[in-house]
């Protein structure tokens, strides 16, 4: 059981990276972005492209990097992929959602448009990389370390948690102390008030997509390192992401972090009783319970 909880924290920190982006978009741009999971897949696959094709072409050797299952190339690929997916998210906003905003479409039309965007992203991945599972470094032995309480954990997994939490702390500092971060929080709180205070909401929206996309990419890559790359991985993350965001109150990034950890731990612990394929269903059941008992989430007091 302690081992499953540990794995749950690893999975939970990946979910949290996605859920924080989702909850930011939900809170500031105010619609359910069904393409968020597929942004995670996009991040994982862009990193794969950089590691196996681009850096090989440039001529950077993929020598081992400490005790981890990936090489030096990943260190370069990670930020490149985050920036690339941030751009993808912003481009989707420019060509799709901005047009819908200027037409004054309802929130559900945005959600439907994002559903279309999700399928477009997944189809591009399937066309370029095919449907098979892929690895950053196929055939790599991945030895586990022994921790107290009989926990076996791979060095990769320790690093995943460290990277995820570093990114979240970084986001926290950004939102608390920069001007843009404060403007984003103000917009999330009350868009009309932000507008009359002279905040350029279009710029806020671009920043929101950029941050959301970059965090999603990070989550996707970390999942690819931990497990494998699959075109449907992002879609399968969608329900855990929404469950985490709703559990932690929509718009609240600390709630999304906590929600992500709870969902991750619940999913892993459930494998002690259920088939592992039921993990998405576990997230779904938790979400339904939250909707019935406390629809505004753990941190939600005032009306949503």
């Amino acid at each position: 059981m302690p081992e499953l909880i540990t794995y749950g924290i690893v999975l939970g920190s990946i979910i949290a990276l996605g859920a924080i982006g989702l909850t930011l978009v939900y809170g500031i741009i105010r619609f359910a972005n069904f393409a968020h999971g597929d942004l995670m897949s996009a991040g994982a696959y862009v990193a794969l492209f950089v590691v196996t094709d681009f850096l090989a072409w440039v001529g950077i050797p993929d020598t081992n990097f400490g005790p981890f299952s990936f090489g030096w190339r990943m260190l370069i690929a990670f930020p490149i992929s985050m920036v690339a997916v941030a751009c993808v998210a912003i481009i989707f906003d420019r060509i799709l959602y901005r047009k819908l905003r200027s037409k004054g479409s309802g929130a559900v039309i945005f959600a439907m448009s994002s559903l279309g965007a999700a399928f477009i992203l997944r189809m591009v991945i399937l066309i370029v990389w095919g449907a098979d599972s892929l690895f950053y470094r196929p055939g790599m032995l991945r030895p586990a370390m022994d921790l107290p309480l009989g926990i076996k954990i791979r060095p990769d997994q320790v690093l995943i948690v460290i990277i995820a939490f570093s990114l979240i702390i970084f986001l926290h500092l950004f939102l608390q102390s920069t001007k843009m971060g404060k403007a984003m929080r103000a917009t999330a709180d009350n868009m009309q008030l932000a507008l009359v205070s002279g905040i350029d909401t279009e710029r806020i929206i671009i920043w929101t997509w950029g941050i959301g996309g970059a965090l999603a990419a990070a989550g996707g890559i970390l999942y690819g390192i931990d497990v494998q790359l699959q075109p449907s991985m992002g879609w399968n993350f969608l329900i855990p992401l929404f469950a985490a965001a709703i559990l932690g109150t929509i718009g609240n990034i600390y709630g999304a972090l906590l929600g992500g950890l709870i969902i991750g731990v619940a999913q892993q612990v459930s494998t002690a009783f259920l088939m592992p394929t039921y993990k998405p269903a576990v997230a779904f059941i938790i979400m339904i319970i939250i909707l019935l008992v406390r629809p505004r989430g753990i941190f939600g007091g005032k009306s949503a």
């Binding site: 359910a32 959600a111 969608l238 329900i239 998405p280 779904f284 339904i288």
Partner: peptide
């Protein structure tokens, strides 16, 4: 949009 998320979940389940 909660209905959307719930119906999505039920279909996958």
């Amino acid at each position: 949009d909660y209905l959307a998320i719930a119906t999505l979940g039920i279909a996958e389940t």
